[in-house]
Design a protein around this nucleic acid. Sequence first.
RNA 1: CGGGGAGUGGCGCAGUUUGGCAGCGCGCCUGGUUUGGGACCAGGAGGUCCCGGGUUCGAAUCCCGGCUCCCCGACCA
Length: 547
Amino acid sequence: MLSHRLLIRSGYISQLGAGIFSFTPIGWRVIEKIKDIIRSEMNSIDCYEANFPVIQPSDIWEESGRIDSFIPPLARFTDRRDKIMIIAPTHEESVISMVRSEVNSYRDMPFSLFHIQTKFRDETRPRGGLLRVREFEMKDAYSFHSNQESLDEVYEEFSKAYFNIFNRCGIDVIKVAADSGAIGGKVSSEFISIAENGEDTILKCDECLYAANEEKAEFKKIIKNDSENFMEKSEKETPNIKSIQDLTNFFSLDAHYFIKTMVYFSGKKPILVSLAGDLEVNETKLRNLLGDDVRLADNDEIIQLGLVPGFISPINNDFDLIVDDSINLKADYIVGSNRNNFHIEGISPSKEFNIKHYEDIAKAKKGDLSVDCDESKCKGMNEYKGIEVGHIFKLGDTYSQKMGLNFSDTEGKQKSVEMGCYGIGVGRLLAAVIEANSSEKELVLDKNISPFQVYLVNLNSDNTEVKEVSNSVYSDLINSDYDVLFDDRDEGPGVKFSDYELSGVPVRIVISKRSLENSEVEILERGKEDFKMVKIKDINKELSKLI
RNA sequence: CGGGGAGUGGCGCAGUUUGGCAGCGCGCCUGGUUUGGGACCAGGAGGUCCCGGGUUCGAAUCCCGGCUCCCCGACCA
């Protein structure tokens, strides 16, 4: 991963363990600048900074019900009194615990709080340097409301502030509809920086601007017409024809005329999942329906359940059956027979299926029309890879109900507080910025977050004049309140220039014997091919144009 | 959790097959020469060979057990 290599080579970070990194002084300066930008944008929407503990008593996690259900499992230890302590992966519980004794009336709201705090999530596999780590700093904000409309309004304010934050850090992001995962809640949006090697896949219609994480994306399905009830129910021999691809060739019919049936386990319970033959299962949607402990059965398990891989049938068995809404219950389909080398045609789900859930559990893909698409204008969604740099949620009253965060409304009735929560991974944001703008040779940071404003280099550093002039230029710059990194090492130009390139600093000033022949220095703006010769007395004037 | 790989001066690695003085490159220290794109000469320092146990006259090397890290997958704000 480019950002990982650059962060190590530039000496910004150092690894201590799997997914656990230290920041060096230069790396930390960048982190602090990013946090300052976040703070200023939070302040501008009247979100106040607070602080919540990293180590928390387990009681509040029992109240919220997440003590055993959070994924990845909570990191915990026992203190000297044998009390279970949690190393917090997120802070809804602690915020609510503080706020619930203060909030009594609708008049107390809305308000919002944020903090920038270390969190620990014991991820199964950390990867990509700062992109997926176990210990990380996150800015998280929480908003509190007496009604849904207020939450909607503030959610939009945060959304705007988020665009400002990412733009000020030097990246473009797109906002996409997202699955809310372990945090929960009804509505959530992710902010994605498009990047080739990003972990998230998003689908976006470039015409109507619908955009969603693949996990969440909803799309228009090709649904078989009722009137195509042309099939008599009968078994057909389909020798060694197992895949939908083979079936479409064998029958000369489109894939959506077939029903594909998959076997999953929800915990230890087997579940059949049926969907139109042209679609794949979206396991996130399935998990939201059945709970977190869902996985695809393997071949041996399928056989042990008495099912025949390649010919699994949604009928004639007692398993729970989930049917995707791509299937028209009144139409006729070709399905597996659960007998080797046979399929059955003319099966009408409304008559034959014993359906437990009928919902959208299919995965959208490139080219599908989104639910918002206008068929006459839109050409189907494009697929992009990206890095999730922020995620905001409308939590509603899920947590406030569980933890008793109530208030009296205008009529004096007790109600649960409506909440929103809003996260940004600080280190991940830095990695995303680097991924977006840098190259193998050069670490590029926007001047708003660069560790210094100026990289001052002297060449021929044993030359008295060079030494004196560069020292005095350095003091002048410092006195003019510039952040300056002064590279006065006794090294050759090659070493100093390549270290500059890795430093992320946007402006380079070179002072050498040669440049001093005309009482000048070189000023190079990162990204420009050529430097500019500037009289010593004009350095400040020139810098003010660049910084 | 499944599959694969690795652990030897600060960093990167060789040595392990076939047991026999602990090596190389970079970096570091001293002195000197160099100085507009990662310089050179000379001298020098620095190691519980991941940990524990076993075999052996002798283990970085063989055997058993454990730990850690990396990559792919599964999973995941």
